[in-house]
Write a protein that binds this DNA or RNA. Sequence first.
DNA 1: CCCCCCCC
Length: 592
Amino acid sequence: MPISSLTTGCIQSIMTGTEVEKPVLQILGTKKIASGNDSERYRILISDGKYLNSFAMLATQLNHLQQEDKLKENTIVRLERYTTSMVNKTDKADKRVMIILELTILNDGREVGQKIGNPQTFNPADAASAPAAAAASAPKPTMNNNNYAKNNNVSMNQSINSGHLISPIASLSPYNNKWVIKVRCMSKSQIRTWNNAKGEGKLFSMDFCDQSGEIRATAFRDDVDKYYDLIKQDGVYLISKCTLKAANKQFNHLKNDYEMTFGSETVIQPCEDDNDDSIPTVQYNFTPINRIAEMEDKSMVDICGVVKEIGEIVHITSKTTNKEFKKRELIVVDQSEASIALQIWGDDAVNLMVTFNPLLLLKELDSANSMELKVLALELDPFINSIQIFLSVIKFEDARTGGAGGGSMSTEWLSFFDVRARNLGNGDRPDYFQTKATIQMIRGQNAIYKACSSPDCNKKVVDEGESFRCEKCNITSHTYKARFLVNMSISDWTSNRWVTCFNDLVEQMLGKSASEVDAEIQASAGQEGNENEPFSKMFFQSYVFKLRCKVETYGDSQRNKFTAVAATPLNYKEYNKHLIGDLSRLTGIGKN
DNA sequence: CCCCCCCC
């Protein structure tokens, strides 16, 4: 590879505001800028052979280059994209810094082996006296047609801009409050309230991006009302006068050392053109679903998949905080032919259906061909809105162990033998596992109970003959709601257990509602010994049971109580895949 | 100024 020649003298043009397209420069050094936390930023000493520029920074998305040691001394690079920004220093003149957004390495530092030319530190004061010389020696600098750079020169709305140029997110810091950023909203949270020792209030936060990076912003209290409806996902905004502070990396995974807070001074102006392609849309880095199990707990992943199953909205009351939650679970599959349960909480779970087309999505169940999935996910229009949800950065709970908090499809396969051998059910929290099992026996007696007729209450009522009293709702009604609560003995390949199966699962397995069965039983009242008959359809059916077990104490005896939380009809293709996986793990034969 | 992330 011949050594590339540098764009001699271009630093003068760049640092005085003239844009040079794709300049070729030599790196003479890199330096990590001290920062208060584990996020890094690198300053680069860069040369055009004539001038040195030490006010160049690497956009954080390029940090990997430094970490991979690709920016060694003497390396020659071509800047594919960069931007400059005026940094205001109160005691001195404004200073221009250069932020490198994208570069190509032309020659390795060792290959070049030396500093090219005898570059001198560029001094803007000198430039004023001799501007022509450098421009003449540069190989035809042309105006940079890069959109981002162009935007820097667009005359912005004076009301917020006060004549300042658009700054890249990467240049924001707590020491600089004279800036306007032009950003796209990548995501917006729900409104959340808090109530603690320090007081109460509400907030929402949103993540913004531009070409240089990303940053989180949070609005509190009155600002929530002011801005919540204004900020829309994918919208482009001009924003100024926020407070910056160090980002708390524990909760904020964006690539930025800082995060910002809206205040009374803050000005936000929506841009007319949300399609402005100078401001990037959300960038994804997809992880195949079958790799998630290998990742560290609580890792952040982007996934690209389609919905295989859509759960109902479930209302939950937290046992620790007594707070009400709404949840919906989706099963998502991707090209890796793996699936994972995706939990969607709060209003997101409710609003999901609005843009959802369950028919189209469910169609994938039958033609689960990995090649087709990709095309459908990316190109079928009705998918796009819903798919966006999965494309977003999604936090999966412990997908590996299937223990507390695991998604249903990531639940560990364990036999009843394993469960006993591992002493499961003895912890503070219940244990979850799944096994393929066949229903051997069903206890028909008391398989249906009379539940409170209020829609959200399933509590067993006190039967007062003519009326039914719910002690939870404190109401008495003349009607009740029949619900299943079935005990059945199920057997896997190692052993059998009595498990409790709640209403929805039994209705699903039986294809009949508890009310229908209740009516049948009433109609044939008096016939003894036929209690199991209504359930005969379920006998000897096999399912993949997802089970919860927890040791409970009854008087002075303890018993491991098993409850079915899901029963999926056997999909032999999938189950065989699991068995083949076990075989290859056990024997080392097969997969790599 | 939040920082909770729930449940079966």
